[in-house]
Design a protein around this nucleic acid. Structure first.
Length: 426
RNA sequence: GGGGGGUUUCCCGAGCGGUCAAAGGGGCCAGACUGUAAAUCUGGUGGCUUAGCCUUCGAAGGUUCGAAUCCUUCACCCCCCA
């Protein structure tokens, strides 16, 4: 059995632990029960969720029993950690839908079936039964308010006079702390892992368990997944990068990793892939010597896309990449094109437009929305930026006919380097 | 209440009776270069049935052969004096 703690350490995934001396030994050989929490604010996880998922996956592979805890109850309250504003509360129904979506995604990372199945739990299941009085008596009793006030997540909000913090969010810590206690009681869970911003919540749980039950639990935090410029990873101008294909296509997901900055690539490879150390070292060298090859980014994109979208999703993303970056489009059918150009706007036109003398290329670009006016289309064309099926076309009076279709009904137009639009002729 | 200045094309900003679709910059678009990066360079940047025509310079009227440019009224903004 490999040394899981050493591996985590090598990958830079140990930010802080509650017991540096004991934990490496404690985790050796497997058999421990470990949990991480997931926030159900949406029906899909985004890139940030990859960290805890891969963490649990590594631990499960190392022979530990892992619990993915979906915070149905805590999600209704909102964790103030790292948030600058009071958060909106979710209703029960939305929450349920989100929990279902998220758990579907987890199945790609964690094994819920085999001899050592992961557990998926929702803290709403035990929190809903709690009465206010019993919660105050059993849990609240053990929390000195002065200690709570000292926690970073709370203090940062108290020090600002423009936002403040509600009693509800202030109490969040108690709920998460109790989760840990509950999981220990019911499932023998002894370790909680989370991002470095979770330290306060994790230690609160450890304290609570000691006070309520006199047991010693452990916590491990990992670094947050940040870019070299200090931004959260997974954010683009178009918004978050999601794990669900409906929200972020396999192609865009793939491209996100393909475009990771050189400075961030090494960390991502360590944090998010299971590549062996030797291979990661080799990629580091390749990145230093021949950054233009972008071996690291390609490997990262391959690994993660396969993980999240499966081999099929990866194949689609790769095929789309080939085409989006130059490849001529030939011998395709509608279905393949639809898959590749899933994120590209399209417009349907009657097929008659292609018949007779055909559709003027300027009109085609206007119809497709690639040009706001014929004048603009003309300019693009004159400057050599007009492509049909990835082939540069020239001449204002070019007419497009059935012969210019890329597949049965679709024509792929492009303006400039990579602005695409489809015309569907039905 | 009195006096002065302003409102220009996506943004900033020049224009102060014809040569104004309106300088310059930013942004944006295209091209070259490149690592699907950054920077840089080149060109373009109201519409159309494009040697021409139409619409645009806060709004509406007016003067004039001709107005973004002059006059009147209105709206909004800024400054100064009381």
């Amino acid at each position: 059995m490999s040394d899981i703690f050493a591996d985590l350490q090598w990958r830079g995934l140990i930010h802080q632990t509650t017991d540096d001396k004991h934990l490496p030994q404690f985790l050796k050989g497997g058999g421990r029960t470990i949990y991480a929490g997931f926030d159900p604010t949406s029906d899909s996880l985004h890139v940030g969720g990859l960290m805890p998922l891969m963490y649990l996956r590594r631990l499960q592979k190392a022979g530990h029993r892992v619990i993915a805890l979906v915070g149905g109850a805590t999600g209704m309250i909102g964790d103030p950690s790292g948030k600058s504003e009071e958060r909106k509360l979710l209703d029960e129904q939305a929450l349920q839908r989100n929990v279902e979506g998220i758990s579907r995604q987890m199945r790609r990372f964690l094994d819920f079936e085999g001899p050592n199945p992961a557990l998926l739990l929702n803290n709403f299941d035990w929190m809903r039964e709690f009465t206010y009085l019993s919660f105050l008596r059993d849990v609240g009793k053990h929390f000195p308010v002065n200690v709570m006030m000292a926690k970073d997540s709370v203090r940062s909000r108290l020090e600002r006079d423009d936002v403040g913090i509600s009693y509800t969010e202030f109490s969040y810590m108690l709920l998460q702390a109790y989760d840990f206690v509950h999981l220990h009681q019911q499932h023998g869970c002894e370790v909680q892992v989370g991002g470095s911003d979770q330290w306060g919540n994790i230690t609160a749980g450890i304290d609570l368990a000691r006070r309520m039950n006199g047991v010693q639990l452990y916590g491990i935090t990992c670094p947050l997944l940040l870019t070299s410029t200090g931004q959260k990873m997974g954010k683009t101008e178009q918004g978050a990068v999601w794990l669900s294909a409906e929200k972020t296509s396999a192609y865009l997901f793939y491209q996100y990793w393909m475009n990771v900055a050189d400075e961030d690539a090494g960390r991502c490879l360590r944090f998010l892939t299971e590549l062996p150390h030797a291979e990661i070292d080799a990629l580091d060298r390749s990145r230093a010597e021949a950054p233009q090859r972008r071996d690291s980014q390609r490997r990262l994109a391959d690994e993660l896309t396969a993980m999240v979208h499966g081999e099929e999703g990866l194949a689609t993303a790769q095929r789309a990449t080939e085409i989006f970056f130059g490849g001529e489009i030939g011998a395709m059918n509608d279905e393949q094109l639809a898959e590749i150009f899933a994120d590209v706007p399209s417009k349907a036109l009657p097929r008659q437009r292609l018949e007779g003398e055909g559709l003027g290329i300027l009109d085609a670009f206007c119809e497709a929305g690639l040009a706001g006016s014929k004048g603009e289309a003309r300019r693009t064309l004159q400057q050599g930026g007009a492509y049909v099926n990835n082939r540069r076309r020239e001449g204002e009076d070019t007419r497009l006919t059935v012969a210019d279709l890329a597949s049965e009904t679709v024509m792929v137009l492009r303006s400039g380097r990579k602005k695409y639009a489809l015309l569907r002729f039905q």
